[in-house]
């Protein structure tokens, strides 16, 4: 009896991962983000939780896109009634809008700090607190040492951390498991309907530990992520009709 080839390969890949230094998550819960083919980029095809993710962006438009994507992931993490902390220097998040991403806005505690060192301290303290679902921190600069500290904190507490880096001065190596770049792309509406559609992003996974980086087009519709096959995008590349 020989198992199908794909099963053998999958098993082999799983065996290789520990050799590459991948530590299995103690937390047994699997987060299904409905990300479609994106999950193949992660080790064991699971979105890493209990880890720190890094997002880089420039400009207010991409800040909104990035926080949108993070909110979508956050909603899945908070589904069991957890609470998250959002730490920022000059916060622009509009709490009522979080509801459309599936997050109860009153379950998010915002900590507004001015000094970078305070943000770093609060981020580390929050990540150590295992009663939380996730911690989001807006901190432009993240040194390797600081990222190591955060990574060590989450390894203990199994809290998921998101670091949003706006206009980072240097993109040096960090100890975060992933580095993402999220940018807005035009929304897609069926049958040339007028108006603006669901949020649509180009999701670039620039780095992922023990995984394969890649680029995808993702839409957030009806409280779920939806992977857009490249064919649909090609369709809508032609100029749109003006509305109104």
């Amino acid at each position: 009896m020989t198992a199908p080839k794909s099963a053998i390969i999958a098993q082999l890949q799983k065996d290789i991962l520990p050799l590459q230094g991948f530590k299995k998550n103690r937390n047994s819960t699997i987060l299904d983000l409905n990300l479609g083919p994106v999950k193949n980029a992660f080790p064991n095809a699971q979105f890493p939780i209990g880890a720190v993710h890094e997002f880089c962006y420039t400009g207010a438009e991409d800040a909104a896109a990035t926080s949108g994507f993070v909110s979508g992931v956050l909603a899945s993490l908070m589904r069991t009634g957890g609470v998250s902390i959002w730490i920022s220097a000059d916060r622009m998040i509009f709490p009522p809008a979080l509801q459309s991403f599936g997050i109860a806005p009153d379950k998010i505690i915002f900590i507004d700090l001015q000094k970078e060192s305070d943000i770093e301290w609060a981020m580390e303290e929050a990540l150590k607190c295992n009663g939380l679902a996730a911690v989001v921190g807006e901190m432009p600069e993240l040194s390797f040492t600081a990222s190591r500290r955060l990574q060590l904190a989450v390894e203990q507490s199994q809290v998921t951390g998101f670091i949003l880096r706006r206009n980072p001065r240097s993109l040096s190596t960090t100890a975060c498991v992933t580095r993402w770049k999220i940018t807005s792309i035009p929304t897609i509406l069926a049958d040339d309907m007028p108006g603006v559609g669901f949020p649509c992003w180009k999701v670039e996974l620039l780095k992922v530990r023990n995984g394969k980086p890649g680029t995808w087009q993702i839409e957030f519709a009806a409280g779920k992520f939806r992977h857009l096959p490249p064919a649909i995008i090609l369709d809508v590349q032609e100029p749109q009709k003006k509305t109104g």
Partner: peptide, 29 residues
């Protein structure tokens, strides 16, 4: 995860309030 009643969360917020100040923590309804 005890949600908003979690002791760890209350202690974390106490620490933040103690170090940086009470007016930096917000929650919205």
């Amino acid at each position: 995860t005890g949600g908003l009643n979690d002791i760890g969360l209350a202690e974390l917020l106490d620490r933040v309030a103690g170090k940086i100040g009470d007016n930096h923590i917000h929650r919205y309804l």
